Simulated scan of single mutants.
Amino acid sequence: MNDTLRVRVSRIERLADGIKRFTLRRSDGLDLPAFDSGSHVVLHLDGGRFRNAYSLTSPLDDLGGYQICVRKEEASRGGSRFMHEDVREDDELHIGAPANLFGLHPGEGKHVLVAGGIGITPFLTHIQALARRDAAFELHYCFRNRAGAAALDTLPALVGPERLRLYESDAGTLLDVAALVAGQPADAHIYVCGPQPLNDAVVAAAKAAGWDAGRIHFEQFRNDVDATGGAFDVTLKKSGKTLHVGPDDTLLRVIEKAGIQVDCMCREGICGSCETVILDGVADHRDSYLSDDEKAAQKTMMLCVSRCKGSHLVLDL
């Protein structure tokens, strides 16, 4: 973990049903690195067994501590469960440097923010940045019920009631995505972070309305795909190693356990940072990053969730 920072958990707070906020401060007492709105950090948990990415939600100008919000996922692969059940105040963790895959467009124009559930987290810093720019924006926040929605107590003051719209599905209040898109000016940019159905609906509505792809921004915080499957072997050409991937392990974890560093920001088959060239073999693509044509070409694959259709892969690693 030479490329990580040691941090101490200074505070743990319950924000909503199944959601906790963790405040992290550097163990050496120094300031943490600066970050842009929409950034996240990767937490290395349980001795590196889990690596999970979480959006930074703290004030942009407060580098004395980072804040992250963690929802305990029912189908957790271990990371969110570990954070909720095993991490205590004063525990020490390792984190990577801030990275940003969901930044704000720098130009003028209106910014339309659409959040679903825990997907509200990257917008907590976007709101700060947009307010500093005196930019036109509005926030549409969709959630199942108020008990499980984070930040409801602070959003009205942060955003302003005239720019905040709330949609509680259990109460029958739903977002009309097509109407939202249709009512925007020609220079608007739309941003969505939430469950895949919400992301897909917003992106599809914007494209159907003729929006240029450069005005559509999305971050998917979870890829609901099973990364387990049949066992296989992988040969890493550059490293000269052949490794075995068991049915309950992932290709990325096996490679990391062998001491080979691979960039992977999301670990969910979403961001594309672990894309690797296939030299031989057929990949079982399970990511949501590559297009159907790219998957069919079998030239690259995402190590974090994808597997092998046969018994052996050769990768350019």
Rank of each mutant, 00 (worst) to 15 (best):
F35I: 04
C69L: 02
E162F: 03
E92N: 04
A213R: 11
V112C: 15
H189A: 10
L290Y: 13
A201M: 08
N2R: 15
Y66Q: 06
H111Q: 02
R88T: 03
S273K: 09
H111D: 04
L104F: 06
V245C: 11
H189S: 12
I12G: 07
L198Q: 02
A97I: 06
D292G: 00
T173C: 14
I127D: 00
G29K: 05
L252Q: 06
D224Y: 03
V9A: 09
Q298G: 06
K110Q: 05
C304G: 09
G18A: 10
A179L: 00
R144Y: 03
P156E: 02
R144Q: 14
L130E: 02
D287C: 09
C193K: 05
A75K: 14
D233C: 05
G246N: 12
L101I: 08
R222H: 11
G272T: 04
S306C: 07
W211F: 09
H105E: 15
R267S: 04
D86M: 11
Q196K: 08
G117Y: 01
F102G: 07
F82A: 04
E74D: 04
G214R: 07
I278A: 00
G107I: 15
V87S: 10
G269K: 13
F232R: 07
H105F: 05
T228R: 15
G246E: 15
P197I: 06
A201E: 00
